[in-house]
Amino acid sequence: HDTTVHINGLRIEVHGASEEILKWIEEAARRGVEAEEIKRWVEEALK
């Protein structure tokens, strides 16, 4: 999927993410993980 995830006011563009990654992002956000940190993880995961 190409999608934009909104976390604590930060937009994260996610290209080619699976449902699993999207669920993981939402879970991390709920746990209060910094949005910048999530963004870094997602970029690494999608390389």
Score class of each variant (00 low, 15 high):
26 E>C: 04
11 R>E: 15
3 T>G: 15
17 A>W: 06
22 L>G: 02
40 R>A: 10
6 H>G: 04
24 W>N: 02
26 E>R: 04
46 L>N: 06
3 T>L: 13
34 E>P: 14
26 E>I: 09
3 T>K: 15
47 K>V: 11
18 S>C: 05
9 G>C: 05
28 A>V: 05
46 L>P: 01
17 A>V: 11
6 H>E: 15
43 E>G: 04
44 E>S: 12
24 W>S: 03
24 W>P: 00
40 R>P: 00
13 E>K: 09
42 V>Q: 01
11 R>P: 15
11 R>I: 15
36 E>Q: 11
26 E>L: 06
24 W>E: 04
1 H>I: 12
40 R>E: 07
47 K>G: 11
24 W>H: 06
45 A>C: 11
10 L>G: 11
9 G>M: 01
40 R>V: 04
37 E>C: 07
41 W>D: 01
41 W>F: 13
37 E>T: 12
33 V>T: 07
38 I>A: 01
45 A>I: 13
4 T>E: 11
39 K>E: 05
19 E>A: 12
37 E>P: 01
43 E>K: 03
22 L>H: 04
12 I>R: 00
31 R>Q: 11
20 E>R: 06
10 L>I: 15
37 E>L: 13
38 I>C: 02
1 H>V: 13
2 D>M: 15
13 E>L: 06
23 K>R: 14
11 R>S: 15
42 V>P: 00
8 N>E: 15
6 H>C: 15
13 E>V: 14
47 K>D: 09
30 R>W: 05
41 W>V: 12
26 E>F: 07
45 A>E: 09
28 A>W: 07
19 E>D: 12
10 L>H: 13
11 R>L: 15
20 E>M: 09
10 L>D: 12
8 N>T: 03
29 A>S: 10
7 I>T: 01
7 I>L: 04
2 D>W: 13
38 I>L: 05
38 I>D: 00
38 I>W: 01
2 D>V: 15
26 E>V: 08
46 L>W: 06
24 W>V: 05
31 R>P: 01
15 H>K: 14
3 T>N: 13
18 S>K: 05
34 E>R: 12
5 V>I: 15
12 I>N: 02
38 I>M: 05
8 N>W: 00
42 V>D: 00
45 A>P: 00
34 E>I: 10
10 L>F: 01
3 T>Q: 13
2 D>K: 15
11 R>H: 15
19 E>S: 10
33 V>F: 08
37 E>Q: 12
45 A>M: 14
12 I>V: 08
47 K>R: 14
24 W>A: 08
38 I>P: 00
32 G>I: 02
31 R>W: 05
30 R>E: 12
32 G>R: 02
46 L>V: 08
8 N>I: 03
46 L>I: 12
34 E>S: 14
21 I>C: 08
42 V>F: 06
19 E>W: 09
28 A>Q: 09
19 E>M: 12
33 V>P: 01
24 W>C: 09
26 E>Y: 08
8 N>P: 13
38 I>T: 01
1 H>P: 12
43 E>W: 01
30 R>F: 08
3 T>F: 14
32 G>K: 03
23 K>W: 06
44 E>P: 00
26 E>M: 08
33 V>D: 06
14 V>G: 03
15 H>Q: 13
44 E>L: 09
17 A>E: 03
43 E>T: 06
20 E>D: 11
25 I>T: 01
6 H>S: 11
31 R>K: 12
1 H>A: 13
24 W>Q: 05
41 W>E: 03
18 S>W: 06
16 G>V: 05
37 E>N: 07
34 E>T: 15
22 L>N: 02
10 L>S: 11
45 A>L: 14
15 H>E: 13
28 A>G: 01
37 E>G: 03
34 E>A: 13
29 A>L: 15
43 E>P: 00
3 T>Y: 11
40 R>W: 06
1 H>Q: 14
44 E>G: 10
18 S>V: 08
29 A>W: 11
47 K>Q: 12
44 E>R: 08
17 A>I: 07
30 R>S: 13
16 G>P: 04
13 E>N: 14
21 I>F: 08
25 I>V: 09
20 E>I: 08
29 A>F: 14
44 E>W: 02
36 E>I: 12
18 S>Q: 03
39 K>T: 05
47 K>L: 11
25 I>L: 09
1 H>K: 13
16 G>Q: 06
5 V>E: 04
4 T>R: 05
31 R>T: 11
3 T>E: 13
4 T>V: 15
22 L>M: 13
31 R>N: 13
13 E>C: 15
33 V>Q: 05
21 I>G: 01
45 A>Y: 13
22 L>K: 04
35 A>T: 09
31 R>V: 09
43 E>N: 03
16 G>R: 03
42 V>H: 00
15 H>S: 13
10 L>W: 00
46 L>R: 03
39 K>Y: 09
44 E>I: 10
43 E>C: 05
27 E>A: 10
40 R>D: 05
26 E>T: 06
3 T>R: 12
29 A>P: 01
36 E>K: 08
2 D>A: 15
